[in-house]
């Protein structure tokens, strides 16, 4: 089974993955707000987050996570498109966005366009996933 591996340490914050994702999902349109991957800037460190499932209500975890980049709000790293944050919603229609892995078999545009190795398509076995 294939998955996208994210290595924030390598990410330069070029946001080319956002651009490519939106270009691939709405015809002839570039708009990072339509992308299913977003890059967060945390004090100059860049954290790529790929949109996961839609949540119709916000969770009440609201935790801070300690990472090597310092304390990061969990809502930032969380992949859900949830009403608490304005990310992963189409700006004009409000439709929640979710990464579709760019088709079957997976052909992720974001991985193809990333030039730094921050995004990588890897093979994992089912056992490793859980």
């Amino acid at each position: 089974m294939q998955r996208i591996k994210i290595d924030p340490k390598k990410c330069t914050g070029c946001r080319q993955c956002e651009m490519a994702c939106s270009l691939n999902h709405k015809m002839d349109t570039v708009n990072p707000r339509r992308a299913r991957i977003r890059i967060y800037n945390k004090n100059g460190h860049f954290l790529p987050v790929i949109a996961g499932p839609f949540a119709d209500a916000a969770c009440n975890t609201k935790a801070m996570i300690e990472t090597e980049f310092g304390l990061v709000d969990m809502c930032i790293i969380c992949r859900a498109s949830c009403p608490h944050k304005t990310f992963f919603f189409e700006p004009d229609t409000g439709i929640p966005l979710k990464c579709d892995f760019c088709g079957t078999p997976p052909n992720p545009t974001c991985v193809k366009v990333c030039n730094t190795g921050a995004l990588e398509l890897i093979e994992v076995s089912e056992d490793e996933l859980f």
Partner: peptide, 17 residues
Amino acid sequence: TQDVTVSNGQKCLQAIF
């Protein structure tokens, strides 16, 4: 939050690659 449109998105992607 608005869109920028291009005349041929798929070709554009190819050119980017």
